[in-house]
């Protein structure tokens, strides 16, 4: 076996999250709540990638993500690819799709928005233009660019 391949162990069952932009690896960890999981997780950062230059890769054993969970990643890393592994075989590949709504994921950039002032309240954005990455706050109705918003 090639030494490079030894960097990450093969999965019997689980999910391989590949093509994560190098600087977003730990954001992906927190968006998926991986820090609270009990199953084995391998996190690779700053690995060589032909496409991205440097990339991250995360292998999560015995865990399969819902489409809703995957869509959260669209906020930070639309290039991410997921390989679903069963019995050491890739049985399905998934890409990240921008959802129609983002609930409780990003913060409104408007300081006078109720969501930035009311404790215990979720943010909600409508994705008005998936290609341009334009979001509209459900509450204050301000339109904003996805690359400018901060995670909750």
């Amino acid at each position: 076996m090639d030494k490079k391949e030894l960097q990450v162990a093969a999965l019997e069952n689980g999910t391989v999250i590949d093509h994560i932009p190098a600087e977003k690896v730990f954001t992906v960890v927190s968006l998926l709540g991986l820090q609270d999981m009990k199953t084995p997780i391998t996190i690779g950062a700053n690995l060589e990638s032909k496409k991205l230059g440097r990339k991250g890769i995360i292998k999560v054993a015995d865990r399969f993500f819902t489409d809703e969970e995957i869509s959260r990643l669209s906020v930070v890393a639309s290039s991410v690819k997921l390989n679903i592994i069963r019995n050491y075989e890739v049985v399905e590949k998934k890409t990240v799709n921008m959802p129609d709504e983002l609930r409780g994921i990003v913060r409104c950039a408007n300081p006078k928005c109720i969501t930035n002032n009311e404790p215990g309240m979720d943010t909600l954005f409508h994705v008005v233009d998936k290609e341009q990455g334009r979001l509209k706050c459900h509450y204050c109705e301000k339109t904003q660019q996805i690359e400018n918003v901060k995670l909750v």
Partner: peptide, 29 residues
């Protein structure tokens, strides 16, 4: 007190609430 708590409290008394608020989106919430 949160806006939600104030609204819930007043809802016990009134049939309808007319609200002016300095925060944007307060009425929707």
């Amino acid at each position: 007190e949160t806006l939600k708590d104030t609204i819930m409290m007043v809802s016990n008394y009134a049939d309808i609430i007319v609200m002016r608020h300095y925060l944007e989106g307060a009425a929707r919430y």
